[in-house]
Amino acid sequence: MRLKVFDFFSGCGGTSRGFQNAGMQPVFALDFDAEAASTFQRNFPNVSFSQTDITKFDPAELGKFISENDVTLFCGCAPCQPFTRQNTQKPDSKNDSRRSLLSKFGEVVEYYTPDYVFVENVPGIQKVTGNSTLTRFKKRLENIGYQTVVNIVESQNYGVPQRRRRLVFLASRRGSIDLPSPTHGPDAGKPHNTVRRWIEHFPAIKAGEEHDKIPNHRAARLSELNLRRVKATPPEGTRADWPDELKLACHTKNGYSGHTDVYGRMKWDEPATGLTTRCISLSNGRYGHPEQDRAISVREAASLQTFPDEFEFLGSLNSQARQIGNAVPVLLAEVFGRHILEHMEKNSG
């Protein structure tokens, strides 16, 4: 019996691809973003897709995909921007309409009561004080019979070559459930995956170039000044290594020392720093290629999110970076998918 996956806020499909790799069957996905929808449909041609605002979605539409004896999983990785550290500090952050999306997903869950629920988000969603969105969602599911577990996980401990802290929430109607044990790191007895292992095989390109045979192996252009800066950055180096004439004025005033990773090069033999929606921009993090004079390409960013090389991204260059930065790392979803399937087998009586 295959477990059917219904992927809400699917984005480009990181969660669906990971669950598919684990042995599940994605059958339905929903997302409002047109370019992410195009990417998802290109890579999952046999999955029914709804390019819809979930607040306008009628849950009854899912009835045609669900039979009486099906085992089902609903995943809802809602947009995380309202809960990032930067945004939770803004005065109007509590009024961001995107905060209600998890509540709407809760309505869909309550309508169908799938066997399992999976949610991934930034850790900041847990830090909102009072009767928070996450707290209400958790209570809602427990009130209708789910057993839940929620915690912060380090993606590099599950094989992802990237230091990416995420909140993961699991709910089960088939008995108590926990989170899977780490697969990598000191406690697992297996070294973390590295940048080298996941991107060294891609051929060299220059800033502004796109490889003619490898989909999405395209690097953003650099201004002449930023090209000089990246050339002045040694392996594993940062902007601190530049000569004074290349330094930004905002980084030299009043003893400024913040954001030391911007303009930095990735380290070959360590996991990457966490990728954001601007992960191909040299000025937005440690996103410089370890040795080539450019930021990482879209393809390399996707690989650090553990997407397979044949997974194709559509849309503008900035949109592709946003899709990748927003995605659940494929390998993280795969580990959790295998864990859920093992739980299903143990509790199938």
Rank of each mutant, 00 (worst) to 15 (best):
I152T: 15
V153S: 00
E154L: 12
E154W: 09
N157W: 03
Y158C: 07
Y158Q: 00
G159H: 05
G159I: 08
V160W: 01
V160P: 01
V160S: 03
P161S: 12
Q162G: 05
Q162P: 06
R163Q: 12
R163M: 12
R163L: 13
R164T: 07
R164M: 09
R165A: 14
R165M: 11
R165W: 10
R166S: 07
R166L: 09
R166W: 07
R166E: 06
R166I: 07
V168I: 15
V168N: 00
V168H: 00
F169P: 00
F169N: 02
L170S: 05
A171H: 04
S172M: 05
S172D: 05
R173P: 02
R174N: 11
I177D: 05
I177L: 08
D178N: 15
L179A: 02
L179C: 05
P180D: 07
P180R: 09
S181R: 13
P182M: 10
T183R: 06
T183A: 10
G185M: 08
G185L: 02
P186T: 10
D187Y: 12
A188H: 06
A188R: 07
G189N: 05
G189W: 02
K190Q: 13
P191W: 07
P191R: 05
H192P: 01
T194L: 01
T194Y: 00
T194H: 01
V195Q: 00
R196D: 11
R196G: 04
R197V: 10
R197G: 14
R197S: 15
W198K: 04
W198C: 03
W198G: 00
I199N: 01
I199E: 06
I199A: 06
E200M: 13
E200W: 11
E200Q: 14
H201F: 04
P203R: 03
A204D: 15
I205Q: 04
K206G: 14
K206Y: 07
A207T: 03
A207F: 07
E209V: 02
E209D: 15
H211Q: 07
K213Y: 10
I214E: 02
P215A: 12
P215H: 09
P215I: 12
H217V: 10
R218V: 11
R218T: 12
R218M: 08
